[in-house]
């Protein structure tokens, strides 16, 4: 099974949202659940990034790359970044992978690599 992360398109005005929200940000007219989920594209441009050294305790690594990416459909997403020398504006490609492991659960999210 291919794992996907979904954006939500308003059935009233077509505005695309990520993450999910109950009321469309643009038209504010939709009824409950009037959104169509759409898998997020994987290609995008790196908007900004950081290397985080003060990590939450569940991450047993020395540093964690994080970034905001603008995907090819214009939706932005925050994700982990595994790029040697990240630069604002570079092309990246996302994979849905485990981004956090706790005692009984794995959490999946978008991890970006150099395209």
């Amino acid at each position: 099974m291919k794992r996907e992360i979904y954006a939500y398109r308003c059935r009233r005005c077509g505005e695309l949202h990520y993450p999910y929200r109950m009321v469309c940000r643009k038209c504010r007219e939709n009824d409950h659940n009037e959104f169509d989920p759409e898998p997020l594209p994987r290609e995008g441009i790196l908007v900004t990034h950081t290397d985080l050294y003060a990590l939450p305790a569940v991450f047993e690594i020395r540093k964690l790359g994080l970034g905001i990416v603008e995907l090819s459909n214009g939706v932005r997403i925050t994700g982990q970044l595994r790029v040697e020398e990240p630069k604002i504006g570079m092309k990246v490609r996302g994979e849905v992978e485990v981004v956090r492991s706790e005692m009984y659960s794995d959490y999946y999210g978008m991890v970006f690599y150099e395209a």
Binding site: T48, P56, F59, I88, V99, R100
Partner: peptide, 23 residues
């Protein structure tokens, strides 16, 4: 689900914001 699970903390949001502001 869109920030916290990735390991996002307030310093990391501030770091990304700073990078953009410097640029």
């Amino acid at each position: 689900i869109a920030e916290y699970i990735y390991g996002v903390t307030l310093p990391s949001l501030a770091g990304m914001f700073t990078r953009l502001y410097m640029d």
